[in-house]
Computed example of a mutant assay.
Amino acid sequence: MNAHIASPALRPVRGAAGCAVATLVLAGAAWAARAGWQIRLAVAGQPLSGPPDQGDGRHRPLTALENDYHHLVINLGDAATVLCAVAFLLWLWRVRDNALTLSGQRPRYAWPWVYAGWIVPIANLWIPRGIITDIHHASAPGKRLPHAVNWWWGLWLIGFLGGAGLYTGTTNTVIARAYTDTPLLLVTDAAVVGAAVAGILVVRTLTAVQQDHIHNTRGAAPNR
């Protein structure tokens, strides 16, 4: 049984949720644009001179389409992803703090796992979902976990594991894969976009149930 501990005051989450949703939309759009550009590269076909990396340290000049993919699509997409990660973690931190206050019980995962859970190998396959699950149980006792959580996490794992193999290496390597491994890249991109959409539902749902719990808790408090 978890021991009861002192908890901080309830924190507003609507603003943090709005930022998380906005950046999830931005990240999803960025990855959709990445997929669209990869289709354009595949349709155009690899130049007769071969891939950008010619081997032995030699590189050919990028085509206009490849150059745009390099400087616009990938760089802006990576920036949108980082911004989304920061906003999502800020929201996650707030709803976790509120879940602690509402339940009065020690969380299953200590606070460093809010960050480390995403980057520690093996552990990152289940800990982030576990944190979300615990927040929901504390915020909506007795209510069933929303299906969006499982969809979000399943799609995120597909995108994460697929991206770990396909998006490693230099940008020139990724450009070469856009010509040879287009279907696999598109599956990964679709999973990331789907995870962004499901993530929006997770943020909105958890924020709503937590706000309801906060409202009911305050409404039930005796007047002094």
Rank of each mutant, 00 (worst) to 15 (best):
Q54L: 04
T188I: 02
Y115I: 15
L155D: 00
C84V: 00
R34G: 04
D212F: 02
I119F: 15
G57S: 13
R60T: 03
S139Y: 04
N75V: 15
H4V: 06
W156F: 04
A80P: 00
V209W: 08
N223P: 01
L83I: 14
A16M: 10
H137K: 02
A138L: 01
P52Y: 08
A29Y: 09
A221H: 06
C19F: 09
V193W: 00
A190N: 12
A116R: 11
L92V: 08
P112L: 14
A110D: 10
T180R: 10
T217R: 10
G199P: 01
S49C: 02
V202N: 10
A27K: 06
V193N: 05
W151E: 14
L65D: 12
H215W: 03
S139G: 04
V202P: 03
G162R: 12
R34E: 12
V21R: 10
L161E: 07
V114T: 12
T168G: 10
A148M: 04
G36Y: 12
V86Q: 14
S103T: 10
R14H: 06
H71S: 13
A123Q: 06
I122K: 06
I127L: 08
P183T: 05
I175K: 05
A20E: 09
P47V: 01
R14D: 07
L206Q: 12
V174K: 12
Q211N: 08
F88G: 05
V149E: 14
G104L: 07
A33F: 11
D189H: 05
V73M: 05
R14K: 08
F160P: 09
P141K: 11
A64K: 07
G159P: 02
L76T: 15
N124K: 06
Q46L: 03
G194R: 13
Q211R: 11
L72M: 15
Q210F: 14
V73I: 15
N172L: 00
R177Q: 10
V114M: 13
Y115E: 12
I214V: 14
G28Y: 10
G130F: 00
V73Y: 14
G142I: 02
L76V: 15
G163S: 13
R58S: 09
L90R: 14
A16P: 00
V120A: 06
I39D: 15
I119S: 13
T207Q: 13
A148W: 01
Y109G: 09
G50K: 07
D212I: 08
Y179I: 07
A176N: 08
I119D: 14
L206M: 13
N172S: 01
H4L: 02
P12F: 10
G15Q: 04
E66Y: 09
A196M: 07
F88E: 12
D53G: 01
V120H: 04
A140Q: 01
D56P: 00
V202I: 05
L90D: 09
G104I: 08
G57K: 09
I158E: 11
V149L: 02
R129C: 01
H4T: 01
R144N: 03
A123L: 09
L155H: 09
H215F: 10
L76Y: 15
R204G: 04
N172I: 00
A17Y: 03
G194L: 11
L26W: 09
F88N: 11
C84D: 13
F160N: 14
